[in-house]
């Protein structure tokens, strides 16, 4: 691996039009910093060795000030910062102002999952799927606490704030599947609020929209509604109990009583989760008050299958 490649590997790959601009600013600042670093650090070490003195020190008579020098190292960084600021500001505006023909995708964050809704909400999905070569604007909000969407390969990031809309935009340039992180600390499963960005061709995108219209299966809802963050399917306990084999069993409750996990109990647990908390688990689940009846049924059916 040669030096150039080593340098380039400092940053992850670029997969959007904006990434190159962000990286340009990065490299400008990088080389400026390397330049100053290569003055300060070697000079420190050189002076320490060059002027080392063993035994009793005598009178020293180095300069105690130099108007020229001090002006010099005040003025040069000052000019430098104007330059860097302008680069950063121009890039920031490019990242901030979405093109007018950008397609809007609505993003909702919650503890601890994402929902992306396309085409005026007729399609919802837990992964972000975007077409290549077209500007996409994410209009984002949160249902509970502050989250943040971060897609390293696109170099974009924006917080999602409850009761407000924030937005970011990008134009993907490479087909592939990339990571999307939540970067604003949001509680227990913060580190599992990770999903994928799938950049696909225009045809695949249209196909994706068509395929995902209409009713969702219980399995889809499991990821889409964020159940996945707290409930596993393989029997291991996460923040909430695993769904494996849960249907029809007797559940010991925190208040000492117990209940059979039948349709009614599961529905109750979705709409008002904290009324019947299973022993040993925190009352941490958000209430899905507005979940439609058919979705609840689909989830119950899905749980029945997990014997």
């Amino acid at each position: 691996m040669n030096f150039n490649m080593l340098l380039m590997s400092l940053l992850p790959k670029q997969a959007s039009t904006g990434a190159a601009e962000s990286d340009f600013a990065f490299w400008v600042v990088f080389w400026i910093c390397v330049f100053f670093g290569l003055i300060i650090i070697p000079a420190t070490i050189y002076f320490a060795i060059r002027y080392r003195k063993k035994g009793k020190p005598g009178l020293t008579n180095g300069p105690t000030h130099s108007t020229f020098l001090e002006f010099f190292w005040t003025a040069v960084p000052t000019l430098m910062i104007f330059f860097i600021f302008v680069i950063g500001f121009v890039g920031f505006m490019d990242f901030y102002v979405a093109p007018s023909d950008a397609e809007e995708i609505r993003v909702t964050g919650r503890q601890w999952s994402w929902t992306f809704s396309y085409a005026n909400g007729s399609v919802e999905y837990s992964e972000l799927t975007v077409p290549i070569g077209r500007p996409i604007k994410l209009v984002m909000s949160s249902e509970d606490v502050i989250h943040s969407v971060y897609i390293p390969v696109f170099r974009v990031k924006m917080d999602t704030v409850p009761n407000r809309y924030s937005s970011l935009w990008f134009e993907a340039t490479e087909i592939g599947s990339y990571d999307l992180y939540c970067t604003e600390y949001c509680g227990d499963a913060h580190s599992r609020m990770v999903t994928k960005v799938n950049v696909v061709s225009e045809e695949d995108y249209q196909k994706f929209l068509k395929d995902n219209q209409g009713e969702k299966s219980g399995e889809q809802l499991y990821t889409l509604r964020g159940c996945v963050a707290c409930h596993s399917l393989d029997g291991s306990p996460k923040i909430g109990p695993s769904w494996k084999g849960i249907y029809g069993t007797e559940r010991p409750l925190a208040n000492g009583s117990s209940v059979i996990a039948d349709d009614n109990y599961i529905k109750q647990s979705i709409i008002d989760p904290n009324s019947q908390v299973v022993k040993g688990y925190p009352a941490a689940m958000p209430a899905y008050v507005d979940m439609p009846e058919e979705e609840i049924n689909a989830i119950i059916d899905f749980m029945k299958e997990l014997k």
């Binding site: 102002v97 093109p99 007018s100 937005s167």
Partner: peptide
């Protein structure tokens, strides 16, 4: 605030021309 500038130019210009388009706006 910046968004509002953009809102305006949607109806005025319509098409974007590239990354730098906020300055045109």
């Amino acid at each position: 605030f910046v968004d509002e500038i953009r809102e305006y130019t949607i109806s005025a210009e319509g098409k974007r021309t590239g990354m730098k388009d906020w300055r045109k706006n």
